[in-house]
């Protein structure tokens, strides 16, 4: 069957745009469900993107980069938890602080590690892995199953998250913590520990999104798949200062849009990804200035929030520091 409409490349492009959003949105979900607002997703992604590149640069191995990226995400998650849970700082403000810390910190470290700001040296990244059989499905096969390992990881994480929330003790307690922490506390479970766990998981999931951004796919593969237009805002196997460009916030919007559920959040991330892919792959047919193309995801996010944000029901205790009497 011929893909005359170009659906395959469009889908592939959608997945690539949606993947970092999807990881971060799942990350936001674990944090929010524990009752901690995570504005810091942006910063967590950025720092992990950088840490991943440093790890990969130093070792020559993308897997080591993944490990260092995850470690950085965990660390930042623990910082956010320490400040907003243990020290009871305002969660939104401490999240904002982490974002600024990530921005300034990666700038500082670019100077310290690589000796100059801007863009890091190219590092080894995750090449696309073709899954035989599945990738042979007409039209969608190549798009869905000739992707980076990280994309497959995201495929697995969505049902896993659903399972964890619904079928494990941890999930039950996490949901309760985000709604009525007093109930968890009186049941003899530590609210603080649950929230640390939620935020730490959040940091690691956001880290996966960050690592995907900076080294999710080898550059050669990207070029082949997408062509030149894509490069201006695309995924390079290198770190560029402020390369997240608000994706952490868009992921938060996806989480809200998806009503704080894993499937909803991923659905919203895919929707955002599709819209961006449409603009990027089809936008060149229309003479729109590059700046307006770049604005598109942000405009879309605002529209999505303004249309559906008000109807969303957030975890009741989200944003409120928990204090025992």
């Amino acid at each position: 069957m011929d893909d005359v409409l170009g659906l395959g490349p469009l889908l592939a492009s959608t997945i690539r745009f949606a993947t970092p959003l999807g990881f971060a949105a799942l990350g936001g979900l674990f944090s929010e469900r524990s009752g901690v607002v995570n504005i810091a997703l942006e910063g967590m992604m950025l720092i992990s993107a950088f840490a991943g590149v440093v790890g990969s640069y130093a070792s020559g191995s993308a897997l080591v980069g993944l490990a260092t990226g995850l470690a950085a995400g965990l660390l930042i998650g623990l910082v956010h938890a320490a400040v907003s849970v243990s020290l009871q700082a305002d969660q939104i403000i401490s999240g904002t602080a982490i974002n600024l810390l990530a921005l300034g910190g990666t700038g500082f470290l670019m100077e310290t590690v690589f000796g100059s700001g801007g863009t890091s040296p190219r590092v080894s990244a995750f090449d696309p892995v073709r899954i035989p059989g599945l990738a042979d499905i007409p039209i969608i096969g190549e798009a869905l199953f000739n992707q980076s390992v990280l994309v497959y990881l995201l495929y697995l994480l969505v049902p896993l998250t659903v399972f964890v929330l619904r079928r494990t003790r941890f999930g039950l307690r996490l949901r309760a913590t985000g709604e009525v922490p007093e109930a968890v506390d009186t049941a003899g479970i530590s609210v603080v520990r649950m929230r640390y766990a939620g935020v730490a998981l959040s940091g690691m999931l956001a880290a996966l999104g960050g690592v995907y951004l900076s080294m999710g796919v080898a550059l050669s593969g990207m070029l082949a798949a997408l062509g030149g237009v894509y490069l201006s805002m695309s995924l390079l196997s290198a770190f560029t200062e402020n390369m997240t460009l608000g994706r952490g916030f868009i992921a938060l919007a996806a989480l809200i849009f998806g009503r704080w559920t894993p499937v909803g959040a991923i659905g919203a991330a895919l929707l955002f990804g599709l819209a961006q892919a449409l603009v990027v792959t089809r936008g060149s047919d229309v003479p729109i200035p590059q700046e307006f193309v770049a604005m598109f995801p942000y405009v879309l996010t605002i529209i999505a929030l303004a249309t559906f944000g008000g109807r969303a029901v957030a975890p009741a205790a989200s944003g409120k520091p928990y204090r025992k009497e």
Binding site: G171, A176, E179
Partner: peptide, 21 residues
Amino acid sequence: GPLSVAENVVLGAEPGAAGLF
């Protein structure tokens, strides 16, 4: 509120093996 009666009652001492609920 969003949890079931049973979930509220067993919270903190949930039946189930190996971390499952």
